[in-house]
């Protein structure tokens, strides 16, 4: 097991190195000049050139890359061109909101979707099943921002029981933290409920036709025990895969929800950095996302052996 983990972590190194090179080059090839952005509307060409020089952007790209990579290996991802703050500080300020939103969304989605999926599987073909699957199609189809604005309109403006926007740190006040996450996580959870419920339904239906389920029934086990202990556990692998990928997608892709609810997370930092051509920030975030993907895939693989002891590494 430890060898497997070590091998997987070592295999992440070339992945991250490739990502680093590609991201670095892509950014330099993209139109836009951070120096011109920083200099402002009335800056002269000389002032822009001076800023470019200060930022080291007038050096050859290869030299810029090795300076950045060399520092990165020591854990120093440089300073934001704009905020004049270390990139690590900017990212660390944004991790908590994104992780909070991701985890609460996934927990909410799993708590809702798995029982719904099992229920639909148990009553496959029934009206209930059709209603649940119909809901999941709606969940897939409606854009996140539409759900977001709709929930804001109902719960924050009309009924006025939840806040429109913002994020509170969990360390400041747990209640405030939770209340500010209700609408964003519900908004995001809709699509994941739809996805996980469909996956659960399909997997459970497949497992329910297996011989060991028939044996379990023959042994006289209750329907609930059969469903949860035998069917669901054996159907868990594709569900876990979807949940894992969902977490990875949420960490890097909650830009719209973060914008609609004004959550200062990594998604918004990424968009701000891209719009401002803040190269050090973009590079560090994309590396972080890549590492998160590698790590989550590893955790998914490890989870397989938990649900299916036949899988050994």
């Amino acid at each position: 097991m430890f060898t497997f983990i070590a091998q997987r972590l070592i295999s992440a190194v070339p992945v991250l190195a490739t990502v680093a090179v590609v991201v670095f080059l892509m950014l330099r090839l993209t139109p836009g000049d951070p120096a011109a952005v920083i200099a402002g509307e009335t800056a002269t060409a000389e002032q822009v050139a001076e800023i470019r020089n200060k930022l080291g952007l007038d050096q050859p790209i290869v030299q810029q890359f090795f300076i950045w990579a060399g520092r990165g290996l020591k854990g120093d991802f440089g300073e934001s061109f704009f905020f004049k703050k270390p990139v690590s500080e900017l990212i660390s300020q944004r991790i908590e909101p994104t992780l909070s939103l991701t985890l609460v969304t996934i927990v909410l989605a799993v708590l809702i979707a798995v029982p719904l999926g099992v229920l639909a599987a148990q009553h496959a073909g029934s009206l209930l099943d059709r209603c649940l699957m119909g809901f999941s199609v709606i969940g897939f189809s409606v854009p996140v921002f539409v759900i977001g604005y709709l929930l804001i309109y109902i719960f924050a403006i009309k009924i006025n029981v939840l806040p429109v926007q913002g994020y509170r740190r969990i360390g400041e006040n747990f209640g405030d933290w939770a209340i500010h996450l209700v609408l964003p996580s519900l908004t995001l959870a809709v699509i994941y409920v739809a996805l996980i419920a469909r996956m659960t339904r399909a997997s459970v239906i497949e497992v329910l036709t297996e011989d060991y389920i028939r044996t379990a029934r023959a042994k006289g086990l209750t329907r609930r025990v059969i469903l949860i202990r035998h069917a669901l556990k054996n159907a868990a692998i594709p569900i876990v895969t979807v949940i894992g990928l969902g977490i990875a997608l949420l960490i890097g892709g909650v830009v719209v929800t973060e914008s609609v609810y004004n959550i200062p997370g990594l998604g918004r930092l990424t968009v701000d950095a891209v719009l401002a051509r803040d190269y050090p920030v973009i590079q560090a975030i994309i590396l972080l996302f890549s590492f998160a993907y590698v790590l989550i895939n590893l955790l998914i693989d490890l989870a397989y052996s938990f649900f299916d002891p036949r899988i050994r590494y």
Partner: peptide, 10 residues
């Protein structure tokens, strides 16, 4: 608050 609609809602 970069989203104009969110600012107005707030």
């Amino acid at each position: 608050i970069p989203d104009a609609q969110t600012a107005v809602n707030a």
